[in-house]
Design a protein around this nucleic acid. Structure first.
Lengths: 202, 202, 202, 202
DNA sequence: CATGAATGAGGATTCATTCAT
DNA sequence: AATGAATGAATCCTCATTCAT
């Protein structure tokens, strides 16, 4: 029993070391040797837990994936077709941000890794697909409830996820909006909404 | 004189080979050996033209860069503060698309390489910055001319460039919108504009 | 007492696993890890019983060695200088075959390992020497009793042991003579005898 | 052109080094590292010429193979159905011996490697098959010409090739018969012939 | 200019062996 | 006795780079 705990600990050490090395050298720039060196474990130990750098990346991304998916699943449950659609969106977006913030390093890694080498692409695809699907579900709901115009929600999900990605990149990778990220989220929603919301006035 | 021509040809062969290998293995997955093998030239020859894979990538991206920049510079010259702002945007966007299409492979490479490893990031940064700057200039002009609401044009340039990038990715990397890409561009502009355009009703 | 039995069982498991792995990968191609994996025991357990793969091979060969030696020793005791020398040879040869058949896998391993790497050679040398010595004793007896011509019995023991080895190889390794091996043994004896036997004609 | 010669020389160095290491450690006991060290070439150079130790073994055996095959082919051409069959056999056998002697080290390697690990077995099979086929052809010819009894020539080819192999082993591996090998060959033929030759007397 | 053989550092992977539980 | 996690030496293999032709 104790031994299992030790194994778990070693695995965690590897992941921790990898996270640091990835942040410093980027995924493609890190070798198993680098991770091993940082972890201060023996070379052979690495192979007891992982077979390749790719698998380590996978394990790391898995962690965020679980949190993000849980978040999105919970969110979906809530009904969105109320009065203050826009306000609710803002609340959702901000709590999603906090999930990202909890995983700063891994999300940075994710941003850096997305759409990269064919071999990696599949490992990050889920993120794009998850985000786009979630966005689209919300949009479809908005359309169905009459709050939004009828439009190509797939295309829109691409535009929003792309915009979101860029914002995350600016925020996490380039350090912009360090303090007023929440405020910027409001602006972002406003921009999208006013292009999408039925104006219906008069 | 004859010799220079030959040199130029050899260089072109290397670039051509590299383009193919990058498309197949991704940038991080290609070694000098790979490029040399594909080019059917001698190993030593490579070093007469480039010092590293990175330099090859650079040269390849340079080609698109020049075309894109020329395009954007020319565009800027034109005045945008006319009546049919939206229509003009569409025209601009579509001709930009054709630039991308002419460089399909290299743009794919660019999309795949952007925001990646720290060492490469700098090489692709110009693309983001160029696009964002251009978008922002247009927006600023729109605001100045009273066609657009007053808003944070920097933020908006992020959102638009992110959306655009995602569309390009879907188009070039994942083969979506193969035929009706132009139509989608119209929708895209419409989405953004109606969120940005002063509604000015009544 | 209980513990000793358990230990014996574990040892047997290792030997059994090793036999299978050897048959599949060959001796040189098997690592301790391979045997451990096949045996489903823990890595450390292996070292409680053996120190190296070589020792396992040794233990396996030991088993056949004991049986063969017992057989040959018993045989020697019998007197051969009777009338029907040839018939008796056939009887002896066939019962030797049955010893081999009982240890099919290990004898195959032996055939595969004989004369191989210097480090192993010593472990299999006994087999050749035992066979050659036994053959030679019989031949010497035949000569002494006047049944056989006078000739170099050492050389002859090499020829016969070599021929025998090749037959075993064809039989056990390559599956030839699956059914009529006994018949072939008769032919073999006949070939050798008629070249060795005094013809004594007229 | 000069460069090709150099390459050939390097390849020869590797083969030479390998031959020595094989002789010392046996095939299974030698690593690429061993060969490289012995050859005093760079590690990478090895891979320019071979992909594995197995390929080196192959190349080495190939050399003998060619010589042996040429020898046997030439021999076949001669007609054997003359008067002094036995004498001719002796001549043939002795010139075959000289081929073996020219390739002492490689033939030793061959003897050591035959019937070994499954992966190698195929590489040495040709030797056994070539010898057995050649022997059988001679025997068949002898039978056809009436010089030899009718018997199972396949079985006999196994017995003879096995006996031959053992003699070679004693000679090349264990240093027996260093001086009078030729004399022993005569005895060997005599032994076999008198068991095979029609006595036909009276 | 172009060639391609040779180089050796560095990274990937396996393996026998130890040791705390 | 048995276990299996950890170890690090040894090996395999690739790669960027040099240099004589």
């Amino acid at each position: 029993m104790r031994q299992e705990k030790r194994k778990e600990l070693t695995r965690a050490k590897i992941l921790q070391a990898a996270k640091q090395v990835f942040a410093h050298n980027g995924y493609a720039g890190t070798s198993i040797a680098d991770i091993v060196k940082k972890s201060k474990l023996a070379r052979g130990t690495f192979y007891l837990h992982f077979q390749s750098v790719e698998q380590v990346l996978n394990a790391l991304l898995q962690e965020v994936f679980i949190d993000i998916q849980r978040y999105l699943t919970d969110m979906q449950v809530e009904t969105l077709d109320h009065k203050n659609f826009k306000l609710q969106l803002a609340v959702l977006a901000k709590s999603l941000l906090s999930v990202f913030q909890n995983h700063r390093d891994t999300v940075s890694l994710l941003l850096t890794t997305m759409n990269a080498e064919p071999k990696i692409r599949t490992q990050t695809l889920w993120f794009q697909e998850l985000m786009q699907a979630s966005i689209r579900v919300m949009l479809d709901r908005g359309v169905a409830s009459g709050r939004l115009k009828k439009f190509d929600t797939e295309l829109m999900s691409f535009l929003v996820s792309g915009g979101l990605r860029e914002m995350l990149t600016q925020w996490l990778l380039y350090g912009r909006y360090a303090n007023d990220i929440e405020h910027k989220v409001d602006e972002m929603i406003s921009v999208y909404m006013n292009g999408v919301e039925k104006t219906d006035k008069k």
